[in-house]
Write a protein that binds this DNA or RNA. Sequence first.
DNA 1: GTCTATATAGGGATAGAC
DNA 2: GTCTATCCCTATATAGAC
Lengths: 209, 209
Amino acid sequence: MAKLQGHARNDGTVGQPSSSEGAGTRERILDISLELFTTQGYEKTSLREIAEQLGFSKAAIYYHFESKEAILMALHLRLHALGLDALRNINRETITLEVWSTLLDHLIDQMLSHRALFILHERNRTAFEALHHDERHDAEHDDIESLFRSALANQNIPLKDRVRVACAFGSVIVGLVMTGNAFVDVPDFELGEMLRVIVHDILVPSSSE
Amino acid sequence: MAKLQGHARNDGTVGQPSSSEGAGTRERILDISLELFTTQGYEKTSLREIAEQLGFSKAAIYYHFESKEAILMALHLRLHALGLDALRNINRETITLEVWSTLLDHLIDQMLSHRALFILHERNRTAFEALHHDERHDAEHDDIESLFRSALANQNIPLKDRVRVACAFGSVIVGLVMTGNAFVDVPDFELGEMLRVIVHDILVPSSSE
DNA sequence: GTCTATATAGGGATAGAC
DNA sequence: GTCTATCCCTATATAGAC
């Protein structure tokens, strides 16, 4: 687990091919894996299958990645690399529904631009959770999910509001990643606008109080 | 796949132990599997692991189930066995947002009573989808998911409404199964009421038109 | 109905040639 | 940077004793 391979880069560098251009094989591996992990699931996808689609042998993958898990980790880091710092640097104690509304607006944009990544995460929860347990990727693992989870557990926020935040989050998730191909014809901008309106309806409700 | 084993029941019978009371080993297997499949994922869970928790050997499971897949199928049938016929017998062409609201009310009740089953399904999408492809369990496979999916693709319903249905569905899913243990302290009835209110807010919005 | 023992296959991973 | 060949392990599933 901790042993680093000779010349492979296992860190989160999004990098170009190191010396001469090798057409970014590393990125091709990640792209194919992203697709297969999403459709078949992480565990059901074998390295042989990935290599097959790439046109070369299974063992070649090990030049680029230390292990199968490392591929998933790299995809995980792609998610982290999205500009979600805005979401992480908020004060979790004094947060209001209006702030959540703004955050979800940003999140909708990110999800529209990187739908495939979010779908991967959605459909491989257990695999990603196993990642967290194995390798502590420094500090507190701060993806968007856990940000929301911590908010949902925050006793300072009234329960009713927390449930609404959860539902707003769920609306975005389902609207963008869980519907399969139901809304593929709809332009991203249009779909995003609709979701923003609905999120607003959830967080600033007409009924009650 | 098609070969039936000697004395095992591979159909959907929820049945009691056949002859003398064997304490319903079949159901015990399903309960343990439900738990392990949910926490670790279907693929990551081995029959040895299941047997271990049951206190007997791996091979014994094969007396009760033809295969590992058959266990998942049996759990799938538990979902089917929930009284969701009301949802299936609706007219999909002339359905309105009000009708959807009613259906979701029922769904919330079902999810509250059988949370574990829905969580299992949520976290093992790919495994369940593989089931559908392998074995055509007669007729059109009519679980709740596909009911919603067909509604989301129904061109007779305005796009805006379809997106709202998706979000309402998503709110219920996330509120009940995707939040982990965030709302475990909240009594089912209270949580259900909150969700019903929010679903109403989504489907009968204050903003727009 | 549960056991032990075994067959068989496939997975991840490594060594070393090119 | 990719290959072939191989190791080792674990998984599902079967056979047959008790």
